[in-house]
Design a binder for these strands. Structure first.
Length: 422
RNA sequence: GUGGGCGUAGCUCAGACUGGUUAGAGCACUGGAUUGUGGCUCCAGUGGUCGGGGGUUCAAAUCCCCUCGCUCACCCCA
């Protein structure tokens, strides 16, 4: 029995890598244009970083982390998300000393031990951006714009921005009290999950898709009606800036995200073509996280988006990306005895900066031509007995089928001219 | 963790309900179509423990049980 790939992981094969490179290129280009600098943090961190950052009672921390002990028996965890590590790096590297406001973006694999389904994997890839050090509502709007600009550059359509505010410590505590008391009589009619949530994380009840829970929640006032003056003002400002940027959004009072660290702004970008897991991007403000990790009180906001889901949505929408253009030169030989000469010539061409390939076994010329075609070679050099005896080789244009004799010593220069590489 | 669907050639799938000769097709791959030339066409060939194990039967890809895997959905999220 051959060894198989672990559940929920996937190989990105050569025929797919073009899309990945393309998407990653666009992400980096747009993020840089918006003034975000790339950061790469380790794939694993000490477990407590996530436990404290994301929240002890969240689904991710309680049941979805890949956690293991190192040789000194310290608990490590494969990162399930990117924000906590970035904030850790921000503090540890004292980035607050470099700029008053720090703008970072990242790109890389994340790990969650969930049951895979469409658009969900155990190893998946996220890109995201964080802006640390300002509470201005402008940057909340900018983060959303950055997301949308990446999608726009990629050609994605049918996106919808969902927006909510989850308040701060003060107003959330007030609201939770109100929420609990207003559904207290109906607690027996909640689903089993929500009964637990009532005590552990009542805010999540708002997000429950269960029909009976929904009918109960309907009567409950929205969190946004309980926002304190400061949060209310911030929420209005975010919307003001979104309108200035002509960004359409839908207010969703039931939008609650899965991490405990969110405050005020919470948003999600969904794509209809994605199936059940339709969030292609999500994020929000996290004004207490830096402090939680031992820094001084520092407001921040960020987002994360899924590369697999981005690519999935692009495929659903039949969006084209640059295709593999093939090699420039294929070296074919008629006579097996010319094998040494062919090999030497092949490497010379490559050293001259021109992509080249040949057949390493000994096949018929027809077979070699087929290979040249399959590799999408633009030119094929044919080493023929008769031509070589006159110190010449054949250069065939694969598209026009024109071929001409070239003196051996002039072939490299000829190729450089053809491909305009000097 | 719970539930539905599906596992037959490298890929996409027929065949299974109504067990019965050497399990098929298309694509891909390799070779060939007067011996030095690709894409199209034609011909031929390579390739399968029918996911695995057990059972029923004279006989199992086909019926029954178990198991593994994939997939979609729930929970939650990118």
């Amino acid at each position: 029995m051959i060894i198989r790939i672990p559940k929920g992981t996937q190989d990105i094969l050569p025929e797919d890598i073009e899309k990945w490179n393309y998407v990653e290129k666009i992400i980096k280009e747009v993020a840089n244009r918006f003034g975000y600098r790339e950061i790469r943090t380790p794939i694993f961190e000490y477990t407590e970083l996530f436990a404290r950052g994301i929240g002890e009672s969240t689904d991710i921390v309680t049941k979805e982390m890949f956690t293991f002990l190192d040789r000194k028996e310290r608990s490590l965890t494969l990162r399930p998300e990117g924000t906590a590590p970035v904030v850790r790096a921000y503090l540890e590297q004292r980035m607050d000393r470099l700029f008053p406001v720090t703008k970072l973006f990242y790109l890389g694999p994340m790990f969650r031990s969930e049951k895979p389904q469409a658009g969900r994997f155990r190893q998946f890839h996220q890109y995201g951006a964080e802006i640390i050090g300002t509470s201005s509502a402008q940057v909340d709007a900018e983060i959303i714009l950055l997301c949308l600009e990446i999608f726009r550059k990629l050609g994605l359509k049918n996106l919808e921005v969902l927006l909510n505010s989850v308040g701060c410590k003060k107003c959330r505590a007030l609201y939770l009290r109100e929420l609990k008391s207003s559904i207290h009589q109906e607690i027996d009619n909640l689903c089993t999950d929500c009964k637990k949530r009532y005590y552990k994380n009542p805010l999540r009840i708002l997000d429950c898709k269960n029909v009976s829970c929904q009918s109960i929640i309907k009567k409950v006032p929205a969190l946004t009606q309980y926002l304190c003056e400061e949060c209310q003002e911030h929420f209005q400002e975010v919307q003001k800036y979104l309108k200035v940027l002509n960004i359409e959004y839908r207010l969703d009072p039931r939008l609650v995200r899965g991490f405990d660290y969110y405050t005020k702004t919470a948003f999600e970008i969904i794509c209809k073509e994605l199936g059940a897991q339709n969030a292609v991007s999500g994020g929000g403000r996290y004004d207490y996280l830096v402090e939680e990790f031992g820094g001084k009180p520092t407001p921040a906001v960020g987002f994360a988006a899924g590369i697999e889901r981005t690519i999935l949505a692009m495929q659903q929408q039949k969006i084209e990306w640059p295709k593999d253009s093939g090699i420039e030169v294929f070296v074919a030989k008629i006579n097996q005895e010319k094998e040494l000469f062919a090999f030497e010539l092949l490497q010379k061409i490559r050293m001259a900066g021109i992509s080249a390939e040949m057949d390493y076994s000994f096949r018929s010329l027809k077979g070699q031509m087929r290979l040249a075609d399959k590799l999408k070679a633009r030119y094929t050099i044919i080493l023929g007995e008769e031509e070589l005896s006159r110190d010449r080789i054949l250069l065939r244009n694969m598209q026009t089928k024109e071929q001409k004799e070239v003196e051996i010593e002039k072939i490299i220069n000829e190729l450089k001219t053809v491909f305009n590489k000097f």
